[in-house]
Design a protein around this nucleic acid. Structure first.
Lengths: 187, 187
DNA sequence: GGAAGTACTTTACATATGATAAATAATCAA
DNA sequence: TTGATTATTTATCATATGTAAAGTACTTCC
């Protein structure tokens, strides 16, 4: 659990009791490459922290697989739109390498908020940061060409290109795989 | 302030003390059509609630005016990416009609979080909901044609078309004004 | 009420990206 | 290793949206 608490410390330092409370509602999950953590169509009740591996959130639009986001080591991944609304999620989380994750039960986590304001604050700060990332991404999608977005991705997250199949990168960038291949061809 | 507290009640009901504390750090602002609430280039330290009027967040990309979002009566508007990071904002908030707003000082608000966990929770819930909206918007931008996005906007927020110049709507939809005009021409 | 500035539309042409299909390359399982 | 599956690239053609320029219609303000 130590890597998880190190991650937390970047946002808000917890007391020993706070850490213990989170440890109690969390468990380590090992999972094989290319498998789904949770299926589409259920309400999301888990926040995952990635100890080792890569994961993506994806969904289907007209039978086409669309990657919404990627997450790597020492980051969390969750289907926020279901977690916060309680609605069933049209999305799934899939692991792209043999991975080791820490699964935090969100139902129990949200209950801890009453007893531990420090935990509520911690997750508030984590999700505020994620929210800012999402706002920036809208700007990227809306006002940069596919080529600019691809180059920005190489620069900011070169790991993605190394560890993730290009077909997933394409839909993440909002283009077809053919288009991505064309962009990569230009040098 | 009553309209503000009614808005809050949709997320978390505050105690009288909590309401009073917020009232003390808030003030009513009346502002004329087409003026900026705050200039580009400063750190955002205000969350606005719109009592009457319309506002938009905008910025310049290569000298072109881009609208990031609109907000109408009984909603809040804030440059979240600056509010949460403390960085200066490249964005400005502009009012598109003679408007009446409630300005909440965010520096003082964040200080209240320690004393009033109920206020911290309130704003956590408000921004969680906004975050979910942003996630949904990415999907809209990325995987729907401009025409689909325009029609979705008419359906979800017909007010926008009535109260906001089309040039602002165009950049909000991620297209040029010419393109929007073309789409509107098709019937 | 008229002039000046804004907002909106229309046209013509350029271009980035999509769709489809086929070829090649890489990965995986027996 | 070999064959089968999956991933990636390449080519061709279609189309949505962008750019530029000009025209029309509104607003605003003196």
């Amino acid at each position: 659990m130590e890597s998880l608490f190190n991650f937390f410390n970047k946002y808000n330092t917890l007391s020993k009791e706070g850490e213990k409370a989170i440890a109690e509602i969390s468990k380590i999950v090992e999972i094989k490459k290319n498998t789904d953590l949770q299926p589409i169509g259920h309400t999301c009740k888990t926040i995952y922290f990635i100890k080792k591996g890569v994961a993506r959130i994806y969904y289907f639009k007209d039978d086409i697989d669309i990657t919404e986001s990627f997450a790597f080591e020492n980051n969390i991944i969750a289907r926020v739109e279901s977690l916060f609304t309680g609605k069933t999620s049209r999305k799934a989380i899939q692991v792209l390498e043999d991975s080791e994750l820490i699964a935090i039960n969100s139902t129990q986590l949200f209950k801890l908020y009453d007893k531990f304001p420090e935990i509520e604050r911690l997750f508030r700060l984590i999700f505020e940061a994620a929210y800012v990332g999402t706002i920036d991404r809208i700007e990227g999608i809306q006002f940069h060409t596919a080529e600019e977005r691809y180059k920005a991705l190489i620069k900011e997250a070169p790991d993605v290109l190394k560890r993730v199949p290009l077909k997933f990168v394409a839909s993440y960038l909002g283009i077809t795989q053919v288009s991505l291949s064309r962009i990569r061809g230009i040098r």
